[in-house]
Design a protein around this nucleic acid. Structure first.
Lengths: 345, 345
DNA sequence: TTGAAAGCGATACCAC
DNA sequence: GTGGTATCGCTTTCAA
């Protein structure tokens, strides 16, 4: 290399730093990585040399031997149009970032948009050479990618309890208990004909919330399948389900919807049917989305801690990266009922 | 895929593949990378062996010698809350992905949220060992990061003409011409007192659109500074600006707003003032956002090709990666006026 | 067309 | 504490 002292961008190697600091490459490496067993003197010399040469460790070389990349992947296999419309993701990303703060780990986002994208991504992540581990936010829990990666030895944490018996670490909301609390809340208010608009049967959140509702109703000795109708979490489906329920059980005096959107649709149907909320029919939703508080009347809802979810996922992932032998585990986060006018609060 | 050898995940190296295929590592490497000069026979043997062993090239090792990562960064230094609320980003990402399709390049997203994040990111990207190059979507053009990276030799393309004399490749909308076309459209419709609600002075898009308006007005011999008011692209600022304009120039018969949001705010102010659109005052916006078509009356607007912008940025970046000696350049994309009822179409 | 061998730039083991 | 050196897994001359 040239004899000048010009710090050519990205050109200095550890060897150059070592030479300038008049130490061996080994010592220079220890100083740079902060490893123990380096005299204060040597460390200072190395740091000065590194700064002078504008030294940047070659991450490929480092990864080759450490088998680490210091990159954490966040995979969101959603159509970008939905991804960017959903207010959950910003908070989720913020939560991850908070947990990563001060860790010198860089978060990278992947948003596969097609089967082809997913295959390519599997190749990239599966090599284990791009990220040290990956978080999956899979809204439709059927995505095979996380399980495949986990099988290849890549540390993986997913949001939402996976369908089936996949051996994978996940963090989820305690949907069942949350739904049970909502139903009990309605019962405690004196309601006796408590219907539910459940979620889809093929989604875990739908199943669990339905199970929670049934448990509460069963405990009260009031379980009745004619009080159940299913939707797909959308407002329209909530509207349709409510109309079906009203037709079948005009005597109902409360309804628990497995999502705020469905609850809002239900409220419209109730209004159109001339039922007052909460006087005639009390309503509780799930998610405590902004729309819940803004509704007229304000909608009681079950809140779950998205931020904490993101942080817990990150913590679990970091732990799994530290110790690859850790067995998979599931974590359920508690929900909280936020009572508002729609249930008579 | 039945019984037989058990390919231990991520354990096979090129050497193993070569041995199984009964060729040298060199030949195996050539076969894997698709390099020329390999007999069909050898290639087939290597491919079979690779599949059998579930071989994945170690990307760190490869990068170490090729000095490539096959990763393209997309950096969006926006608060995630804004990022995910803005409908532009999905289309942008889709455009990038389309251009990347079939290239075996993986897109990774970075969303630095703070000064600290940006510094860390500079370190990571600046090493040149994480991405081969980066696209920057910097809504506020003042971000120093792209220029810094470019100075370190990392190929970089930004969206939006940068403020100042930064030597960096960019793609932007031809804001000036678009604004001029909008103003001329109003003039051609017979309007004579054409006001403008301009964008912020410290944003390039604001400056350029104002310049376009002035040029058209000046060409018509109708330039008059009392017809100009500035906003910050938001609906509220458009409302306030319109009120100020009406107070100052009650004789105005048209207004060009530098954003649809401002145009919508202006239309509200006009309605409140008892002016009919377009009979009394014609209105044209900029961006042709979904809100424009949905407005009442539908808003004429200047459309710019977001998808093409994303694709052109990607093309320029790929070219810059191929040939690092390419000088920076700026590309301006044409806009198109979409006339609707608000301007009498 | 093929193979042997020289790196790429770090880390980490092992003497000293 | 420090320094020599093997090593990580791949690509790429250079000869054969």
């Amino acid at each position: 290399m040239a004899a000048g002292t010009q710090p050519v961008a990205g050109k200095a190697r550890l060897e150059d730093v070592a030479r300038l600091a008049r130490v061996s490459r080994s010592t220079a490496s220890r100083a740079i990585t902060g490893a123990p067993g380096v005299s204060e003197e040597a460390r200072a010399a190395v740091e000065r040399a590194a700064r002078q040469l504008n030294y940047r460790p070659n991450r490929a070389a480092r990864s080759l031997v450490t088998r680490r990349t210091d990159l954490i992947g966040l995979v969101i296999p959603e159509p970008t149009s939905r991804l960017f419309g959903d207010p959950h993701f910003p908070r989720l990303i913020r939560g991850v970032n908070e947990e990563l703060a001060g860790k010198d780990l860089q978060l990278v986002l992947f948003t596969p948009q097609s089967e082809q994208d997913e295959r390519r991504l599997e190749g990239h992540l599966g090599s284990g050479q791009i990220v040290d581990g990956a978080l999956f936010v899979s809204l439709h829990g059927a995505d095979p990618l996380p399980a495949r990666l986990a099988a290849q030895g890549v540390p993986v944490v997913v949001s939402g309890r996976p369908l089936g018996a996949v051996e994978i670490t996940y963090v989820d909301v305690d949907n069942q208990r949350g739904a049970a609390v909502a139903a009990r809340h309605l019962l405690a208010a004196g309601r006796r004909v408590v219907a539910t608009i459940a979620g889809p049967r093929d989604m875990v959140a739908g199943q669990d919330r339905r199970a929670g509702y049934r448990q509460a109703m069963s405990d009260a000795g009031l379980l009745d399948r004619t009080l159940e109708e299913a939707g797909d979490f959308t407002r329209e489906s909530g509207y349709a389900a409510m109309r079906a329920l009203l037709a079948r059980r005009p005597d109902l005096d409360a309804v628990f919807a497995a999502s705020d959107q469905m609850a809002l649709g239900a409220m419209r149907a109730l209004r159109e049917a001339g039922r007052r909320v909460p006087e005639d029919v009390a309503v509780v939703g799930f998610d405590d989305s902004p729309a819940a508080a803004a509704a007229e009347p304000p909608l009681s809802s079950v809140r779950w801690p998205l931020d904490e979810m993101a942080r817990e996922m990150t913590r679990l992932l970091l732990r799994a990266i530290e110790d690859r032998s850790l067995p998979p585990r599931g974590v359920l986060l508690a929900t909280r009922l936020v009572p508002r006018a729609s249930s008579g609060a």
